[in-house]
Simulated assay, not measured.
Amino acid sequence: MLGTVLLLLALAKTGCPSPASLVSRRAEALKKLLELFGMEDPPAPPAHFKRPPQYMVDLFNTVANADGVTKNPDVLKGNTVRSFLDKTHSEEMRFLFVLSSVAKNERILMAELHLFRLWQRVTDRPKRHHFCQVNVYQVLEKDKPDTSGGKKLLVARTVSLQTSGWEIFPITSAVRDWTEDESRNQGLLVTIQSPDENPLDPPPLQFASGGGHHESKKPMLVLFTDDGRRGALLPTAGFPDLKPQAPDLPAKMPVPKLGRSRSTRSLDRLQSCQRYPLSVDFEEIGWSGWIISPRGYNAFHCKGSCPFPLGENMRPTNHATVQSIINALKLSEGVSSPCCVPDKLNSINLLYFDDDENVVLKQYDDMVAGSCGCH
């Protein structure tokens, strides 16, 4: 499908019979590309400049190269990571995250509450404690969160009062509950106790809130999901894995304008199956407003002949070798020579704003031709 999309995009740049035809062709290409990314319409860019959470930027850089191609495939749990900022914007340790953008087909794998721990408050009281206990509750009754039946303990942790930085609390069970029934989402409550579970007033530990602190320290929910998409499995039988891939060639190679003569056929044989650049520029197609990274990527494409006899540098399958022999010896009518196609496909990662201005990291399989071979 990606090949069809890229072909349509390429055709949209070329001359066409009428402006209306060009607009229609471009719209069709962009619609197909959106379908490939699992979207019906492109998300609206944020109304104002918005900086993505540093955690999401760092995660993208860990998983992918600058052009979005996956470099560490085992880092992500699933193929989608969503971040949500707190909607309460209050100084109290009550948090609410709206999860309406999570698709029904997404399987919840893991959910984390990220809270930024500020430096210990300076008080005149003697420091009797070096640690405190942080409790994270799922609120069951919005108006009665302090009653025993109004909340459910998700995690309790002892933390040091001598440092600052991010604390991450697992809250997967609560988020699964919320995605099954949105009405159950009454938010989270965080309390601070002494190590012996006595209340501390005022609490010596403070987390940054959604209202009065810098955006880079705001409370955040990070959700790891899988939407069930998986790439096609390419045949690998007969591939010489340790053989070097033929070098990438320029996108355009000068070819003499000759007829289909013996000289031309000889030239085609010299241009054996190779990988060529194929640029996808998100700014050029008008998506730079909502895609954070990358600005574009090189999808590559495969082109060239698969002449008999197929050498190991052409990475032929066993079937392609047999087909090449049958074609060369004319042992059967209508059997063509093998085709030059991708024999390895790599995934890319997009970091983008969704319709609710949440930042999403999504991984898409089979988006880059990693190498080419004769099939």
Rank of each mutant, 00 (worst) to 15 (best):
L2W: 13
G3N: 14
L9Y: 05
L9S: 02
L9T: 03
L11A: 12
K13S: 07
K13L: 09
V23S: 06
E28S: 13
E28Y: 02
L30P: 07
K31L: 13
K32Q: 14
F37M: 12
F37D: 02
D41F: 14
A44Y: 09
H48E: 13
Y55K: 09
Y55T: 04
V57A: 05
V63A: 04
N65C: 09
A66T: 03
T70R: 12
T70A: 10
K71S: 09
P73T: 06
D74K: 15
V75T: 15
V75N: 05
V81R: 03
V81I: 11
V81D: 02
R82H: 10
D86Q: 11
M93P: 03
R94D: 03
V98A: 14
S100C: 06
S100T: 13
L115E: 10
R117A: 09
W119S: 14
R121Y: 00
R125W: 08
F131D: 11
C132W: 03
Q133W: 00
V136T: 11
Q138V: 03
K142R: 01
G149W: 14
K151W: 02
K152F: 12
V155C: 07
V155K: 14
V159K: 06
T163L: 07
S164T: 10
G165T: 02
E167M: 14
I168P: 01
F169H: 10
P170H: 08
T172P: 08
T172E: 09
A174E: 08
V175N: 05
T179Y: 02
D181Q: 09
S183N: 14
S183H: 11
Q186H: 15
V190N: 05
P195Q: 12
P195G: 05
E197I: 00
D201I: 12
F207D: 08
A208C: 11
S209H: 04
G210P: 10
G211L: 15
H213R: 12
H213S: 07
H214W: 06
K218S: 04
P219E: 09
M220W: 06
L223D: 05
L223G: 02
F224H: 15
T225H: 01
D226M: 01
A232Y: 05
L233W: 02
L234V: 04
F239Q: 12
P240M: 07
K243W: 12
Q245D: 10
A251Y: 02
M253G: 01
P254N: 07
V255K: 12
G259D: 13
S261R: 03
S263I: 04
S263H: 04
R265Y: 15
R265L: 14
L267K: 10
R269T: 12
L270G: 01
S272F: 10
Q274W: 01
Q274M: 13
L278P: 00
E284Y: 06
G286S: 13
G286Q: 13
P294N: 05
R295F: 06
Y297M: 03
A299D: 07
H301C: 12
C306Q: 10
F308V: 03
L310N: 07
I326A: 02
L331Q: 02
S332F: 00
S332E: 13
P338G: 06
P342K: 00
D343L: 04
D343F: 06
L350E: 07
D354F: 12
D355Y: 07
Q363H: 03
Y364A: 01
D365T: 10
D365V: 01
D366T: 11
V368S: 05
A369T: 00
